[in-house]
């Protein structure tokens, strides 16, 4: 679990993590938003379904993959939170939607 430091940036942005609106400091990544929302893991691995949390936070490890605004497999540590952003944890491999063009 993570929390904000007492003198955190007062400028906040509202994002939606797994359907719940939370406020995060401006500049925070989508990955940070998931951690602030109280989730200990951000994805389940495609191979064995193990829970994972971000490991590197700088775009190297891909353990922070999440669905952002409907697009799966995004590196959430490299995406800055924007107002209204919809963030979902990624459970195993991305789903291929046959109805999508």
């Amino acid at each position: 679990m993570f929390r904000l430091r007492p003198e955190a940036n007062a400028e906040t942005i509202a994002v939606v993590v797994e359907g719940r609106t939370i406020l995060v400091p401006a500049g925070a990544s989508a990955a940070a938003a998931v951690l602030l929302a109280g989730f200990s893991s951000i994805r389940e691995t495609p191979v064995e379904g193990n829970e994972r949390a971000p490991y590197c936070m700088m775009g190297v490890c891909f353990d922070c993959l999440a669905e952002i605004d409907g697009v799966p497999n995004r590196q959430s540590c490299m995406v800055e939170a924007r107002p209204g952003m919809q963030i979902r944890r990624q459970i195993r491999a991305r789903k291929i939607d046959p109805s999508a063009q």
Binding site: A28, A32, S40, S41, N50, Y55
Partner: peptide, 25 residues
């Protein structure tokens, strides 16, 4: 090292740099 709760120290530092996050617990 793959368990949630384990991350790089630099990674945790990036959470502090970008979003003022600190570990709870």
């Amino acid at each position: 090292w793959t368990l949630p709760g384990v991350m790089g120290a630099g990674a945790a530092q990036i959470l502090l740099k970008t979003g003022d996050l600190v570990p709870e617990g």
